[in-house]
Amino acid sequence: MEKEKLFCKGGGCTAKLGAGILSRILSKLPQGPEDENLLVGYDSKDDAAVYKVSDDIAFVQTLDFFPPMVDDPYTFGKIAATNALSDIYAMGGEVKTALNIVCFPEKMDLNILGEIMRGGAEKVIEAGGTLAGGHSIADSDVKYGLSVTGLVNPNKIYTNNGVKPGDALILTKRLGVGIICTANRVGEASSEAMEAVTDSMTTLNKYAAECCRNFEIHACTDVTGFSFLGHLHEMMDGQLSCHIYAGQVPVFEEALRHADEFLLTAAGQRNRNFTGPFVQFEDVSFAMEEILFDPQTSGGLLISLAKEDAPALLDKLKDAGLPAEIVGEVLEKTEPEILVTN
């Protein structure tokens, strides 16, 4: 058991640098000559880069890796891969190839590494992609993830800031992953909650993306380390506002109890510090506030589309077995940027 605790020190998307730090760094990077074929780059705050190679084909490129957030190496591999693959789906693309990213202590049992990579390989295969290689380095701690390449039609890219006034917002997975994983590390989470959270973190967003294909999606992002509200703030892009109905947001119920017990993450507090000034809560419990700021590992898609199309898409998502809900609507620019009511 002691070995397992050393393996899982706390990771997943809670390990991400804060949004404020990243914004300051990225704003100072040299950009070089403009390339008209680079349709989406790091300056857009989007989920992945998109590069046009022809009128009907563009590459979607992303990478993601992090430390373990669960004790079982095989399960960790599946979660890390599912999370990395998600950015391709958030851009409207299809997964084609993936490369392993591995940091591993030389003195640790190599069978652990084998189980991590087995879990990752299985999710790449499920995604319809090919695991084509990778890179490893010796490190003091375990980290794993993927660099992923997908394809998308340049005219059908989902960006994260194409929202329109009057749009409905749909969330496809439950929130509260970070809080429950934190509670689990101190022995407070129930086995049932961890099983449900693990099932969510290993469910590919491929299935939600497939439901979207016959709809005009205005914007899409996957909810990960910056939290539901942090990624929602990026979607508004300083141009629009939104109203979120907290009572309709899908959550893991046990996360509410743990939040009330202050089993929170440092990353969640960084999210609150950065995004909080753009949010106004009305009649929303402290626990629900924390869940909305909670960093998600391998979270669901947050989708913006015309209000009249939302019920039909929601039906498709539910038929696919996803706990999706319509969680809010997009408004013309006003103050506050994000209004959250119960």
Rank of each mutant, 00 (worst) to 15 (best):
V53T: 12
V53W: 07
S54M: 12
A58M: 09
A58G: 10
F59T: 07
F59S: 06
Q61M: 15
Q61C: 15
T62Q: 05
D64V: 09
F66D: 05
P67T: 09
M69Y: 04
M69Q: 12
V70G: 05
D72Y: 02
P73T: 05
Y74N: 08
Y74P: 03
T75M: 12
T75Q: 11
F76I: 06
G77E: 00
K78H: 05
I79E: 01
I79T: 04
A80M: 06
A80C: 10
A81T: 03
N83A: 15
A84Q: 06
A84R: 01
L85D: 00
L85W: 00
D87P: 05
A90W: 02
M91I: 15
V95S: 03
K96H: 06
T97E: 13
A98G: 08
L99M: 12
N100G: 07
N100M: 12
I101E: 02
I101D: 00
V102S: 11
C103R: 14
C103V: 06
F104I: 09
F104N: 06
K107N: 15
M108E: 11
M108W: 08
M108A: 15
D109M: 11
L110F: 12
N111E: 14
I112S: 05
I116W: 00
I116S: 05
I116H: 03
M117E: 11
R118L: 14
G119S: 05
G119L: 02
A121V: 04
A121C: 11
A121T: 09
E122L: 12
E122N: 11
V124D: 02
I125T: 11
I125P: 03
I125W: 06
E126D: 13
A127G: 07
G129S: 09
T130I: 13
T130H: 12
L131W: 01
L131M: 10
A132M: 14
G133E: 03
H135D: 10
S136R: 15
S136F: 13
A138I: 13
A138W: 08
S140F: 13
S140E: 15
K143N: 12
Y144H: 12
G145Q: 04
G145K: 01
S147V: 10
S147M: 14
V148C: 08
G150L: 06
L151S: 08
L151Q: 04
P154L: 08
K156E: 11
K156P: 04
I157M: 07
I157S: 02
I157N: 02
Y158F: 15
Y158D: 04
T159E: 05
T159L: 08
N160F: 01
N160A: 09
G162Y: 01
K164Y: 07
P165K: 13
P165M: 10
G166R: 09
